[in-house]
Every structure is written in structure tokens, then in C-alpha cells.
Amino acid sequence: MLEINNISTFYGNIQALHDVSLKINEGEIITLIGANGAGKTTTLLSVSGIVQPKSGEILFKGEPIHRMKPDKIVQMGICQVPEGRHIFPYLTVSENLDMGAFLRKDREGIKKDLEQIYDLFPRLAERRHQQGGTLSGGEQQMLAISRALMARPRLLLLDEPSLGLAPLIVQQIFEIIKKIKEESGTTIFLVEQNANLALKVADRGYVMETGRVTMEDKASSLLSNEDVKKAYLGI
């Protein structure tokens, strides 16, 4: 479904990604794990078109998207929940959700999806008229994921959904991620520092170090890999 072929991305003169390649098949959850500054977020931003790779190509359903503007990429069905959630702080919860569906024209469908989301997250329904910035961290993460779902993505990019959240909430978020995959068949590209959790929900995993992909394997094999255990799982 998504194919990243040898992309190199720069911030000014600093090279953040070196020949990164990875592949996501329809309907699977893949995860990209690695330390701080390894280039995980840059990889996701490159897919969304926020930063453009200098060389290499990104194909979505066989079509090159690495020179497209971000709104065209969203239109094709790729949505991202960025690191740090990025809730619109002065828009209400329902306005935030409405912005998720910005490019959709089917009013009926949007309404139905909104109700579904309120069913799934009663907390958001309770707070629908409250400003996004006033929600707790966990609620904001749920809102951020819901907002992305409002676009009915084919591919969902999740950047550090567990960041700064209490362990119990992290569990909930990962339950939701599994549920999204099972119920709507959405393909998920998950970037996480919490490698243990990420590898448990994912089908396959990639390991990234200083801008390069250094390992790729089935998630279960990575979980039992001695090097991964030592470096990322703390065992």
C-alpha cells in the first residue's frame, strides 16, 4: 500500500534520513521504533508532505506522493496524528472533529461518523462544547485520533500516541488502535518509543538508528531478538 524507497530528508544542511526504505501492506499494523532523534518523526512527516525528501520516492497505491502538497495527500487517504497531539486549543471538541473531516463533502456520512465517535468515546461527547485546550492529556490523545478518523483514512500514521500519558491511559489507547484496525480495516503505521507495547500490537516492525533503518522483521521476532531486547526493551 505504502512504499518508501531510499528517501533522504534534510533540515537545512543536516541530514535527518539516510536512504530510508520501508513497506506497508494493506490492512497491517507496522511499527517503527528507535531512540530519540533517530528520524522516526521525520519519516512520518515526509509521508504527509510536511517535509519533502531530497531524493528517493514515496508511493501510495503505486502513485508517487513525495512531491504532493499535504492537503492532496490527506485527500488520498493518508492521515496523521502528530507527536504531541496538536489539538486546536481554542476550537471546541466538536469543531476539532469537524476539522478532521475538512475535505469530505458527504454531510450525512460525517454526521454518522461523528455519532460513532461519540459512542466510542463518551468522554468526548460529554465535552463536545469545551475548548480542546482544556482537555486532559489522555482526552486530547483520544480527540486527536478521533479527528484523524473523521477523514476516513485508508492509512493512519500515529506518532508517539503514548507520549506523556499515564500507563492506564496508554493501555486504553493501544486497545483503541487494535480496535480501529479490526473494525475498519485501516492500515496503521505506528511510531513509538514504547517498543514493548508497539511490537505487541504490530504485525511487523522496523528499527531505526541515526536516520537509517537497521532492522526489519516480524514484530514477534523483534520482541525476542537479543539486540532489540537490550537496546529498546530494557530486558
Binding site: 499535504p70 492537503d71 490527506v74 492521515c79 496538536h86 476550537l91 476539522m99 475538512f102 479527528r147
Partner: peptide
């Protein structure tokens, strides 16, 4: 919707891009 998009853009440009504005 365009008005909301304006406010969203004012509050967080990067996120506005990511929702397709």
C-alpha cells in the same frame, strides 16, 4: 467550515496542513 479552517490555521498551521487545509 471555511471560517473554522481560518481559526484552525491561526492556532496551529502544521496541524491545519495535516487535516488537509
Amino acid at each position: 467550515r471555511m471560517g473554522k479552517a481560518m481559526r484552525a490555521t491561526a492556532q496551529d498551521k502544521k496541524m491545519a496542513r495535516l487535516v488537509g487545509i
